[in-house]
């Protein structure tokens, strides 16, 4: 099972728009709320009300700054969950066969009935997308909400990942990257969707849309408005002329 399928029918995944993400963490908590209740063991929180709280989350939002010499610095909120890599290094390393990539849609999952909690898959993932749940001792990761996207008990429109449904800014998009006509494929094409750490050779399915250029960093300034006159009399002249026209 730990062999990667040679190809998958669909390539389901997320597009995350770094130009739109405001860093609100809504996706983080919605993901926790859904997944602690559904797929596999709950996502535990150790020392939940104490001095060193630490819990399992399948999606976390970092904040970075980027600065060019001599320019204003930019702030970028950066959500990150499993990228459902095509060449997922986390899968073949798994000794138990618990980790696998689905043939039909490419979703990378952990079968908790087999996972022995060795942590090796998390070591193999460059993105920090896997977390071993401290209480249950099994590996947790983004399931791409596999129990939502096909869920016949949910209304059709809700058959999308929890994080996508909740994102207030609409910075997260879900779809099939194997279909060039899908919403996600188009977004990637239009906006130059990028891979994280391409040098790792993982071929991530999830793509990130880069921030658009910022006017205060590398944009041009609009030319100043043309004054009617430097004097107030000039303004009053303009006023009279304009009033005649209305």
């Amino acid at each position: 099972m730990t062999q990667l399928p040679t190809s998958t029918e669909k390539k389901l995944g997320l597009v995350i728009d770094l130009d739109t993400c405001v860093g609100c963490h809504a996706c983080v908590i919605s993901c926790k709320g859904w997944n602690t209740n559904e797929y596999g063991a709950p996502l535990s929180d150790m020392d939940a009300y104490g001095g060193d709280p630490s819990g399992t989350f399948l999606n976390r939002v970092h904040t970075f700054e980027a600065k060019q010499e001599g320019c204003a610095s930019q702030t970028i909120h950066f959500p990150k969950s499993c990228l459902h890599c095509e060449d997922a290094p986390c899968v073949p390393v798994c000794p138990t066969g618990a980790s696998y990539k689905r043939e039909e849609d490419g979703i990378v999952l952990v079968n908790e009935d087999k996972c022995m909690g060795c942590g090796l898959c998390a070591w193999a993932c460059p993105y920090g997308a896997r977390e071993l749940d401290e209480m249950a001792g099994v590996m947790k990761k983004c399931t791409l909400c596999v129990d939502r996207i096909y869920n016949e008990n949910l209304p059709e429109e809700d058959r999308i990942p929890s994080c996508v449904r909740t994102c207030p800014a609409g910075a997260r998009h879900f779809g099939d990257f194997a279909d060039p006509e899908s919403n996600v494929s188009k977004l990637v094409a239009e906006r130059g969707g990028m891979d994280l750490m391409p040098e790792q050779g993982t071929k991530p399915v999830n793509k990130y849309l880069p921030p658009r250029p910022k006017a205060d960093v590398n944009g041009t300034q609009a030319p100043a408005l043309e004054a009617q006159s430097e004097e107030i009399t000039g303004f009053l002249g303009w006023l009279d002329r304009t009033l005649e026209k209305i």
């Binding site: 602690t36 209740n37 559904e38 709950p42 929180d45 020392d47 009300y49 209480m135």
Partner: peptide, 9 residues
């Protein structure tokens, strides 16, 4: 005080 470890769900 709140409990130590929790696993909601």
């Amino acid at each position: 005080k709140g409990p130590k470890d929790i696993a909601f769900g």
